[in-house]
């Protein structure tokens, strides 16, 4: 499958400090790829290098088939959408005026404004002045701004950080629809549920280095103890290993009607991160 992003052994050094070291990964076309890591791990630096806001010190980056020297060109910018902590809106203007500006800058049809506002659950609010919006509503307008031109590849830095669960779920639905239509999504998030639910593959970045990269389910399986946690009607908590010799025990609990609940012990992505790095993902 064709890659939307190819990163080969990149390094980024600020003065004497290395922020990113020997990072390599590929993002397949049409994939939702999650970059996970604690604050200061290098997520934003990585996104900035992929979007041309920062140059890499060493290594090779190819995005949408374009090499580093073409990243930042008008052709490149027309194909990508960005939502980052650097994204902002014109506070004195309305939602509509803000989106109209970017529609015209990206040469997108004006009918996209209504469509994208529906996607971010802001239909009917377009005449509101941005300065009067809540933080969550502003975040949704920023997302609409990033997607107004139907980009091939979207970089989303913590897209639902300021949203309540209802609006976050609405955004997730919109992102899935966008992805089903063929858009590749590169996302950074602290929200492990979001990463598990949305991402096809995730990578863990810690102190500027990649420590894991796989499908969320595979990572959870890999770091599982493969044991079953059983609760009986007597209130007993049992840990039974997933081995052939323990099959009879599970069978007996079921046969004697003692089993109240049984769970596998697959860790959450947050727990996987903790196991891999010894650090909390905060």
């Amino acid at each position: 499958m064709e890659n939307s992003i190819e990163v080969v052994e990149i390094q980024k050094t600020f003065q004497q400090q290395t922020a990113i070291e020997d990072v390599s990964f590929q993002v397949k076309k049409g994939e939702i790829f999650g970059l996970l890591g604690p604050s200061g791990s290098g997520k934003t630096t990585t996104i900035k290098m992929l979007t041309g806001e920062l140059g890499q010190t060493v290594g090779k980056i190819k995005v949408l088939g374009m090499e580093s020297d073409q990243i930042g060109s008008a052709e490149f910018k027309a194909k990508i959408g960005i939502l980052s902590d650097n994204s902002s809106l014109y506070e004195r203007l309305t939602i509509y005026d803000n989106l109209k500006l970017f529609c015209r800058l990206y040469n997108a049809p004006m009918r996209r404004i209504d469509a994208i506002l529906r996607d971010v659950n802001l239909h009917g609010e377009k005449s509101k002045t941005v300065s009067k919006l809540s933080k969550g509503m502003k975040q949704r307008v920023l997302l609409a701004k990033a997607l107004i031109h139907e980009p091939e590849l979207v970089f989303l830095d913590e897209p639902t950080s300021a949203l309540d669960p209802g609006n976050a779920a609405h955004i997730h639905q919109g992102l899935r629809r966008l992805n089903e239509a063929g858009t590749t999504i590169f996302i950074t998030t602290h929200n492990m549920e979001e990463a598990s639910a949305l991402c096809d593959r995730v990578t863990f970045l810690n102190h500027g280095k990649i420590v894991e990269l796989d499908r969320p389910g595979e990572l959870q399986y890999k770091y599982s103890t493969h044991a079953f946690h059983v609760e009986t009607f007597d209130g007993e908590q049992l840990v039974i290993n997933n081995t052939p010799d323990q099959a009879e025990r599970i069978k007996e609990l079921i046969a004697t009607n003692q089993m109240k609940a049984i769970h596998t012990d697959e860790p959450t992505l947050g727990q996987v991160f903790l196991k891999v790095t010894g650090e909390e993902l905060v």
Binding site: A74, K77, A78, S88, L89, Y106
Partner: peptide, 10 residues
């Protein structure tokens, strides 16, 4: 930071 939005556009 609105200038960054213009710079990120084509």
């Amino acid at each position: 930071k609105t200038l960054r939005g213009l710079i990120q556009s084509p």
